[in-house]
Simulated assay, not measured.
Amino acid sequence: MSTAGPLAAGGGEVKIGEHWTAHPFGFTLNLDTIVGTLVAGAIVVGLGLWVAHGASVGKPTKLQIALEVTKEQIEQQVEDNLGIRTAPWVVPFAFTIALLILLSNLLAILPSEEWLPPPTADVNLTFALSIVVMLAVWFTAIKRHPVRFFAHFKNPMAIIEELTKPISLSLRLFGNVLSGVIMIQLIILLFPIWLFWVPFTAWKLFDIFIAVLQAVIFTILTIIYFGQALGGESDAH
């Protein structure tokens, strides 16, 4: 997918959705998105190994506490929506998704957006993430309740709902992160160099809030979709 296009601002131009690309075998690869995703993924793996290596019950580090609190919140959401015993693997799945999206979003606060924008500002990544989530949800629903899953498609609105879930999930994340990238470009163009650092810094701080908020929303919706797919099982437990 392509989202490229110019937007005039004052005497300059804001470039939307432009990527440095490669074209192997006739396919277009957005290399900045791939590199950004690999960087975020490497940080997730690195944090996990680091915390696991130095994990302590008596003297936990601040990072260990932060990750444990995040995991506990996800466990609570899973318990509330479908019951942990119903699908215990949803917790690590949602936890990994949350960390990957959060760290991808947080690349927006680095002064490197021109050559390495946050990968979640590319709809190709957000749509891929939402498809992975929905495939996992649908697989779980078919595995646990195949008759009920296919029976509910007798209602045409159910088909539309299932098709719009990955679209809305991806576009919500993409739109919010991309808007932050555009705002930074507008600030640089509209403010003189001696003044632009004030709104620039303020918006970077706001970017942190947006990064956390969008990761939370994506993760909660992921858990809710699993809850809908396994509806009734948590009550049985």
Results as ranks from 00 to 15, higher is better:
Q76D: 02
Q76V: 08
V78L: 09
I84H: 13
T86R: 06
A87P: 11
W89T: 14
W89A: 15
W89H: 15
V90H: 03
V91H: 15
I97P: 04
I97V: 15
I97Y: 02
L99D: 05
L99R: 05
L100D: 04
S104R: 05
N105A: 08
N105K: 04
A108D: 08
A108P: 09
L110P: 03
L110R: 07
L110Q: 02
P111I: 10
S112P: 03
E114S: 12
W115E: 14
W115C: 06
W115Q: 10
P118G: 01
P118N: 04
P119V: 00
T120C: 09
T120V: 07
A121S: 07
D122C: 14
V123W: 07
L125A: 02
A128F: 09
L129C: 05
I131G: 14
V133L: 01
M134V: 14
L135Q: 12
A136N: 06
A141G: 05
A141R: 04
A141E: 08
A141K: 02
K143D: 12
R144A: 07
H145Q: 08
P146R: 00
P146Y: 01
R148F: 13
F149R: 10
F150S: 03
K154F: 15
N155G: 09
N155I: 05
P156G: 12
M157Y: 13
I159P: 00
I159C: 00
I160T: 07
E161F: 07
L163T: 04
T164H: 10
K165F: 12
K165T: 07
P166G: 00
I167D: 01
L169K: 04
L169I: 03
R172S: 08
L173E: 02
F174M: 01
V177Q: 01
V177A: 05
V177D: 01
V177C: 02
L178C: 06
S179V: 09
G180P: 03
I182H: 03
M183G: 07
I184H: 00
Q185G: 04
I187Y: 05
I187S: 08
I187R: 04
L189N: 01
L189F: 06
L190R: 08
L190H: 05
L190Q: 09
F191H: 13
I193A: 14
L195F: 13
F196R: 14
V198Y: 06
F200K: 14
F200Q: 15
K204H: 10
K204Y: 14
L205H: 10
L205S: 11
D207G: 07
D207M: 00
V212G: 05
V212H: 03
L213C: 02
Q214F: 06
A215G: 14
